[in-house]
Amino acid sequence: MKRDKEDKFDRQLREKFDGFTPEVPPGLWGKIAEQLGEEKQQPLRGKKRRISTWWMAVAATLVVVCGLTYWFNRPVEVTYLHGGAALPEMEGPKPAPVSEPEKEISPAPEPLDAERVKRLFAKRTDKAGNRLAKITAANTDEGTAARGVAVTASAGSGSAKEEEILPVEQPAGRSARLEEAAVALEEPVLAGVPDIQPPVVLDDVEDTMLAVAPSEKPSFGVSSILNYVVGAVDQREEKLVTFSNDEEGSLKLDFNFSLARNKKKKIK
């Protein structure tokens, strides 16, 4: 009975609304038609944009990752000393990118006077000879005879013999090299290079100059980062793992197995 009454109420309402046709706003169809026109174009445009954006993001990420990987694993620059071997090559035509900027920066090089250079060398040789003579004289006064035959001879024969002996006392090949440098400086091509100053630099260390290995700057790379991380984890003086870079830039791993064994023993 109750259900029938409720159904009747619902039915009455349904019948009431069955013929209900309220007025529709006049401009509504225009909005619908306009939206329908946009809907026909938007789905394709929206999809395209989404896909292209996605690929662009992926491509950008790849480029960044590859760039960082190359940067941290790039080969270390090796500088080779050419010495005199490079001199003959400089006689030929100079490469444009190297010579042009120097012309702009440095003033025009003036040709070196070979006679003047020789005089300078002779002057310096005399000075060095005098210094050596003083040293040898002092040594002989103290009675030390173990300085060599040449020194003893110079001390005994006086200043007249010093001039003959002193060139012998100079490091082997010094005067010869100086003469070579002087001859080389006479050449017009070499005179154009402003950075060459061998007469001034060659004082006491000229023999060791070429033998000294090029100073290597400590490179900051992946190995440094990894060593820092290992150092943060492993706080002992000796590290279990050590990273380093060789000259070609390859990453090397060094394991300290003795530490690993000690650790195992400690754990047991």
Binding site: F17, F20, T21, P22, E23, V24, W29, I32
Partner: peptide
């Protein structure tokens, strides 16, 4: 179709 059914659907 819109003109035919819009009033009823508006209800």
């Amino acid at each position: 179709l819109y003109r035919a059914l819009a009033p009823k659907m508006m209800g």
